[in-house]
Design a protein around this nucleic acid. Sequence first.
DNA 1: CTGAAAGCGCTAACAA
DNA 2: TTGTTAGCGCTTTCAG
Lengths: 368, 368
Amino acid sequence: MSLAGRNPEREADAATDNDVIIRSMSAHPPDRQPTRPTLAQVAALSGVSLKTASRALGGESNVAEHTRTRVQEAADQLGYRPNGIARDLRRGAQASTLIGLLSGDLANPFYSRLAGGLERELRPHGFQLVIASTDEDADLERQLVDNLLERRIRALVVVSALDEHDYLAAERRHGIPFIFADRPPVGLSADAVLLDNREGARQAGEHLIAGGHRRIGVVGDLSRLSTHHDRIDGFAEAMRAAGIADWTDYLVQDAHDVAAAERAVAGLLRRNPAPTALFTTNNRITTGALRALRDHPNPPALVGFDELELGDVLGVTVIAHDAEEMGRQAAHLLLDRLGGETGRARRVVIPTRLLVRGSGERFPAGTP
Amino acid sequence: MSLAGRNPEREADAATDNDVIIRSMSAHPPDRQPTRPTLAQVAALSGVSLKTASRALGGESNVAEHTRTRVQEAADQLGYRPNGIARDLRRGAQASTLIGLLSGDLANPFYSRLAGGLERELRPHGFQLVIASTDEDADLERQLVDNLLERRIRALVVVSALDEHDYLAAERRHGIPFIFADRPPVGLSADAVLLDNREGARQAGEHLIAGGHRRIGVVGDLSRLSTHHDRIDGFAEAMRAAGIADWTDYLVQDAHDVAAAERAVAGLLRRNPAPTALFTTNNRITTGALRALRDHPNPPALVGFDELELGDVLGVTVIAHDAEEMGRQAAHLLLDRLGGETGRARRVVIPTRLLVRGSGERFPAGTP
DNA sequence: CTGAAAGCGCTAACAA
DNA sequence: TTGTTAGCGCTTTCAG
């Protein structure tokens, strides 16, 4: 990983067929870095001291109106723009307005909704989001956390791929709040916003059982993820309650992407006897299942965890929840902490609910 | 918008109910800011000079191995973490590793894929993404651009809601590259990654005409967006070529969200005569159309612009393109600029292609 | 191989 | 109302 921006050779040979327009605009070619005007220059141009210029531009009181105008004009003329880095440094790291967000993969609508909810809630408070995707890679996650912390972000929201968060303990003591989203912290006490995974999955299981199913295929995500465990546990509970002991015969795990899920479902359907219903434990897996089931003459019932973009149109029965709300709640926890809240770690649970839309209500073959 | 942390009025009147808790908690704990260790402290603890500590931790050569270890130990013991703000300040703004991304709404899969492609491509170069959503609001966009620029981001990728970009010209002269994504710059010459909107829309029109349709309803996004214009233009071209002059009778514009699109489509279907086909010019509109068409006994043919999450499963004929690729291309343009490329503004066009899946191939009612 | 001094651009104290 | 002096934490000369 090269630290961006030093690559002399490249700069040298790229300066070939220059853009006439750009060149003619940028004053004089020789000065490679068109250095930005500083506050000192603004002050000089307007004939006041540095501090007065600072005050005028910073909107502080105790500045004569005509001084303010003069400084403002000078700033405009120079195209002055305050240097936030310098300001942050001077004001101390705790003045930063950057909030970090680390999640698995932005392309997953679940995460992007989360990000959207978070950002919208934070924006009015003047905070901005720095995001990074971990691709569910533990090493990358640690590295990105380091990067973000060095950047002196004010707080960090993380959908962690790690199963151990000791290493963050030291950081927390330095006053930067961590909010865990979707997956709880392990070995560390910190605020978290979680889904009601157990309950949702249990509901899915019960719903299918109520529909008369006994052989239910379950396709799960990476088995190391706690969300996965919880969902499997919740489902198991429903099976236990129904006296179905051998449901694990139809359990396939570690299907982390759509393609893997599609294969897993296809495999389940080839079993003999085949499952009469499926429970898919997240949106990607459900998508894969829908692909596998397309054109199936007599598809099994299907209940999926997570809402789907076009779930209503497709008639897919799901265990839905509000991902944006999760982002908003994370924002609240975070803002509270930044506001000085020092109470014990809080946990917000986002409820799930069963949306009956058809796919989950198909009866087992042979049933009237 | 207040830069977090300074907004006296707001804090004042916000300190009504919920702040009570916060106040009481934050009030006392004497050590408010558990100040972080600095390099100087590490140096002191390890008994070397500041500069030596810097060298040791910075992985520079010319440091005795045992000195390096000693410094490293001191750093670990103190939980030292370099202050990126100070580093950036010292190294100069052009050393920042932050790239700004401004787009309409992260929750839209198109933007989140774009963000994903961009981030993945930038990460190996040591850059991080600061994102913000404009919600297609022009004023907000300008504000956010300002924020980002003050933060001394290294480059800015923007899906602009503005129809005029003069105000960025001054900035560009200061050496920060702007990359326009999805929508071209207006009144400013800058790199851009665009979709082949005209061509895609023309293809959609031709496809429906080839299917025997003459009355085709078109539902479009905000009419001020250039992407919208281009798509309408391309479609118009196809109509012209087919000798259909009055197609605009069935044109509805400014349907920016799913609900509006659903209403628009419902409205079109109530016309007499009703259109036998629909062209929906983006993913949200297509979603709305699918909702409106659900349970329709004899739905019109439908071609949508943009790929849909479950478009294959649903059998929706679309004009597809690769949003992640758009992000990657934006990254390339950007990295080139940062590498010193000063050539004239470049434009990368991402191709579109028709994916035939059923919905677009329904014949007009009454046709065999 | 190591260190001392300077200063990035800004804001916070404290004068005046 | 304005100005002066420090110094945030780091890297960069330039000397040892």
